[in-house]
Write a protein that binds this DNA or RNA. Structure first.
Lengths: 218, 218
DNA sequence: TAGATTGTTAATCGATTAACAATC
DNA sequence: TAGATTGTTAATCGATTAACAATC
């Protein structure tokens, strides 16, 4: 149990490794080196080796990493070797999209309950799940042992939903609303607000009338 | 034009500042200090001052930052003081969701064209936009001076769509598909794949049977 | 003036990369 | 054995934070 404190940067790379490795399996590639992985992802091979080495010795010197074995190990690290249940609040288009994505995903993360407080939504069905009113959130989370909450409601309602998730005892929240949410330190919050993403892409646009290649060497 | 190389970390914080500042405007707050901003966002005030100082002197000593003025400046930095046109490929639920979000957003980023190659989608209407076939992508991007592309198609089709966006000459791509895309260096690519986000949240879950508080002090 | 807060330099901290012995 | 590639230590690089003079 050498548990050095693992940085967030490392944790965010693990799912990316998993993605590439899953592609490898599909193409029936059995072994991959940090070099190959690095090429695919534009990452330094030493970084990849170091990332993995935080958690154990998964490779073989002179050979590389066994793809299937490494997938198994990364799944363990990310704790998705077990099924993780997820609740979603907000049965709009985005909520629908996530439920569908989820259906086809082979990770062990399952959206098992959907909530919405709009009368027009309650009782409708998404992907075999009946949309429940918010009043049932706390009980359902407890019953089903749901551990993560997803927020896909308008910004103005997001903090309120977050509060209810916290009350219900989820350990993490994935927030799609463009709002800054306050939750206790022990609850992990992650923002997936696409307006932020778009704005940061805009930064890299070239302003009209400016030359593209000013000392842009690296 | 002091153009030190600005790090990606800085760029990704700017939209967050903008979000808080917009909230301030709504609450008719006129001035904000780096201290206040830092409290709201759990960031070090020195970091915020430094981030802003890369781009100019926007504050007043002893006073703080004028909210409206700072918004204007950050918009300029992010190049959203002008309207930035965006194209979206993939008229599914996620595509719908993004178009709707967009409608209500007050940033100057506008989805002005939607594409999809499924016969059942072509010709339908999303948010006043008619869904066009992929064959019209290149011409439409040129005509409308579209600069950013959003990909909301299944993973397997994503690289193909990316290629077409690149051919059409977009400067940036926001990819929602769980796939690793290859594009030329001059095109900015940003991944917004929610499965990655979910997996990295899972890392922070507490494994059943493990105590939560093992040297978790900081 | 006294108090507050910026912009910026210097110090610290942490993450990435290079290098290489171990070994398959 | 020779070639390849890991795991890991040391070196480098870059980002965050502390501190403080300038000044509103």
């Amino acid at each position: 149990m050498k548990q050095t404190k693992i940085s967030e940067a490392v944790v965010r790379r693990l799912p990316v490794y998993l993605q590439v490795l899953n592609e490898m399996v599909n193409r029936e590639i059995q072994t991959i080196s940090s070099q190959d992985l690095g090429n695919k992802l534009d990452l330094n091979p030493a970084q990849i080796r170091k990332d993995l080495a935080y958690f154990g010795e998964f490779g073989r010197k002179g050979v590389g990493y066994d793809v299937v074995y490494l997938i198994e190990k990364i799944r363990q690290i990310l704790k998705v070797d077990q099924t993780i249940k997820v609740a979603l609040v907000g049965a709009g288009n985005l909520g629908h999209a996530l439920c569908n994505y989820n259906k086809y995903s082979k990770d062990n993360m399952q959206i098992t309950a959907v909530f919405d407080d709009h009368p027009s939504k309650i009782g409708t069905s998404i992907n075999n799940l009946t949309v429940l009113p918010m009043s049932e959130l706390v009980a359902t989370v407890a019953e089903q042992k749901i551990r993560i909450g997803i927020i896909t409601v308008p910004a103005i309602e997001a903090q309120n939903v977050a509060n209810q998730f916290v009350e219900a005892g989820v350990e993490g929240i994935l927030n799609f609303a463009p709002a800054i949410l306050r939750v206790p330190d022990e609850v992990r919050i992650q923002n997936a607000d696409f307006t932020r993403e778009l704005l940061s892409i805009a930064y890299y646009l070239v302003r009209e009338g400016e030359s593209q290649d000013e000392s842009d060497l690296d």
